[in-house]
């Protein structure tokens, strides 16, 4: 564990609390892509199958994994049951088959072994790298977003960005090289946030509303 990874994980945690806060205080999930949230559940469940094998890393690791699975499922409940009327599927139109299919193929080509743990792990890494796309697509379609929603996306972007210095740090301080699958997918994932990040820094953090140029 190093400073960058810890900060990244805390940023990831913060993003979930921001999202829960947004849904519960506005009593609405308007502006949140249900499809992205479904993809996160799939990502966490397929990646953390090692929980079932009791291959223990640390209490931190186990608690965080359980939290990510639990909170992501809870968010689906909030969106689909509790605040269902505020969820507008007509603007959440990204076709997630186009993400799930290629990620499944990639995980069959690039993985660390043809086992029931490794293939889903690899799949989850590829899927996470593109899971935000339905959310960004929705933002693009509506052209604007509530400020709290942009804080949520920015916290996710910060989490991904912080994993990059984490890998650089690990490369120089540990002698077990680089996890190519995690790093390549991670860089792709971070790149997807660049456009959003630019508008977030130049508009939202200057006190303006998040609006895309016409």
């Amino acid at each position: 564990m190093n400073f960058f990874r810890l900060l990244g994980d805390l940023s990831h945690l913060a993003s979930i609390f921001i999202l829960l806060h947004k849904i519960q205080t506005t009593r609405s999930c308007r502006g949140i892509s249900f499809k992205t949230q479904v993809l996160y559940v799939v990502v966490f469940v397929t990646r953390y199958l090692d929980l079932l094998t009791f291959q223990f890393h640390s209490i931190y690791n186990t608690v965080m994994k359980l939290f990510f699975i639990g909170s992501s499922i809870y968010i689906l409940y909030l969106m689909r049951v509790r605040f269902r009327p505020t969820n507008d599927p007509s603007i959440d139109t990204f076709r997630i088959e186009y993400l799930l299919g290629p990620c499944a193929v990639l995980s069959l080509i690039f993985n660390y072994g043809y086992t029931w743990l490794e293939i889903p792990w690899s799949f989850s890494i590829f899927l996470e790298s593109v899971a935000i796309l339905p959310q960004l697509f929705m933002l693009q379609r509506t052209g604007e977003a509530e400020t709290i929603t942009t804080h949520y996306i920015a916290a996710l972007g910060a989490y991904r960005a912080l994993y990059i210095p984490n890998w650089i740090f690990r490369y120089f301080t540990e002698d077990n090289g680089v996890d190519a699958i995690a790093v390549v997918a991670g860089i792709v994932q971070t790149a997807l946030y660049v456009d959003f990040g630019w508008i977030y820094f130049t508009k939202v953090l200057q006190g303006q509303k998040f609006e895309l140029p016409a």
Partner: peptide, 10 residues
């Protein structure tokens, strides 16, 4: 050679 240190990350 592929390294799997991503496994201890979240």
């Amino acid at each position: 050679e592929a390294k799997e240190n991503g496994k201890d990350e979240l």
